[in-house]
Amino acid sequence: MAAGGDHGSPDSYRSPLASRYASPEMCFVFSDRYKFRTWRQLWLWLAEAEQTLGLPITDEQIQEMKSNLENIDFKMAAEEEKRLRHDVMAHVHTFGHCCPKAAGIIHLGATSCYVGDNTDLIILRNALDLLLPKLARVISRLADFAKERASLPTLGFTHFQPAQLTTVGKRCCLWIQDLCMDLQNLKRVRDDLRFRGVKGTTGTQASFLQLFEGDDHKVEQLDKMVTEKAGFKRAFIITGQTYTRKVDIEVLSVLASLGASVHKICTDIRLLANLKEMEEPFEKQQIGSSAMPYKRNPMRSERCCSLARHLMTLVMDPLQTASVQWFERTLDDSANRRICLAEAFLTADTILNTLQNISEGLVVYPKVIERRIRQELPFMATENIIMAMVKAGGSRQDCHEKIRVLSQQAASVVKQEGGDNDLIERIQVDAYFSPIHSQLDHLLDPSSFTGRASQQVQRFLEEEVYPLLKPYESVMKVKAELCL
């Protein structure tokens, strides 16, 4: 049975990233139509530049190519590739079939990587351009969430054990800070992308030097003109047959890092959902379990974690691919890159769409948070109580021993009897502590235990987050809708 299948058929496997999760716009960027249309555009740009620099290419040939950029006979191309065992030459023939007058000058002087690699770089750039505003929107939604809850005390956790208090907004800023680093890295790697350009079979530009009869300047002009037509500021000066596969490492490393950030955020949300302090959106008709109707599973956060793990592992592909590119190139890269580049971007696209949807509907339960604080705060307040007693004339050592005994009794009630923490009640009825009984409410005010959390939130948002989001103001209103 021949390899390949009808990918629109229910009898043929289709990647869930495309069929179930990723956005239509990201799927289109990695589609065959987008790819092969870009090949034709690159052939047109090459012909236009070659004509401008004096090669015998007519206006009629150029116009014929322009008129057929979208006229792609995919069936013919597939048949040609089956016959020739070469995808680029299959599309040269297919393009030439609908451009008979231009057929002889299509791909003039070029090698397969002229269309293959340059198209990949265009796709990487455009895919990054799709991700950047999506990530900015996630940051914006979380920034709104953090600002609104900047002063809401909550129990902090280290080692997932109760620690000092923080605020809900401050905790959210930990998430935002990681995503801001990801946004900066995505922008950097996007701006650092260079075009492969017009380089020939081993990167020496020998074929173009021959076409222009040894004119170095025209060869350099050709490279520059096509690079500018493709919208790049610069091209690699040095290439082998391909652009260095280190570029793929750079791009997928940034995406993998984004995956790590999203995994951490969504894990926190899942843990908070278990504590009943916070939940992701839950639709009115949504079913959490087929057997347990009360369940409210954090399905979206779980999906993000599941896909983020996949995204983090994909960076190993370009690392290994770059390491086995012998001399000017081997074909070890080809099949692998067809999979890992598309999957990385479709996965990143999915987790950003999902995280935006989550961040637009996060639900906080202040009463649950308050109750958990009441359970733990008495123990945390013991040092403040000791200091207040010393100020009232008591002995630190005597007070410490009193607190120690009462704390152990209260802990026994919590752990052995399943009761509430009654340390404060014990202190309130103990005559030894009568000098500070009137101060206990103040000493137990949760806001006095959150330090500068709310001020940190305000400063972080104003100095770091809002300036970073400013270039994306025009796209901030787009909502994230999930079908599944």
Rank of each mutant, 00 (worst) to 15 (best):
D332G: 01
S306K: 03
K284F: 14
N384K: 06
T382H: 02
I386K: 03
N185G: 13
P435L: 08
T242A: 09
D32W: 07
H159T: 02
R188V: 05
D268E: 14
T154H: 08
G451N: 00
S334E: 02
F433Y: 09
V115K: 01
T202V: 08
K101M: 13
N384C: 12
M387R: 03
D117W: 00
L84C: 06
Q41I: 10
V251R: 06
F345E: 02
L355H: 04
R329M: 01
F74T: 15
Q375E: 06
F157I: 05
D430R: 06
A344H: 05
H91Q: 15
V189G: 13
D192W: 07
G418V: 03
F208N: 06
A388C: 07
L444D: 02
W43C: 01
S323K: 03
C99S: 08
L142W: 12
C266R: 02
Q375N: 06
P378A: 04
M65F: 07
P293I: 04
S289A: 02
F145I: 04
D178E: 13
R374Y: 06
R149Q: 12
I57N: 02
I139Q: 06
G96H: 00
S359D: 14
Q439N: 12
E148N: 10
T202A: 11
P467T: 13
K415F: 04
C113A: 11
I436D: 04
E148S: 12
P10Q: 15
S151T: 12
H310A: 09
T58F: 11
G96T: 13
D6A: 13
L252D: 08
D317W: 02
P366M: 03
R20C: 00
V262E: 04
A344M: 07
G197S: 12
L484I: 10
Q356W: 11
R426Y: 10
N185E: 06
H217E: 11
M389G: 07
K229R: 07
K224E: 11
R270C: 00
A22V: 13
D216W: 11
K246E: 02
L155Q: 03
H97S: 10
F160I: 05
T267G: 13
I424H: 13
L346D: 00
P24A: 11
S474F: 15
I369C: 12
I351V: 12
L341E: 11
Q41D: 11
H86L: 00
W43E: 07
T52E: 10
F345P: 03
A344V: 03
S15G: 15
E376D: 10
L331W: 02
Q161W: 00
S448C: 14
F28H: 11
T450S: 05
K82Y: 09
K82Q: 13
M278H: 03
E463A: 11
W175I: 04
T244V: 04
G200D: 00
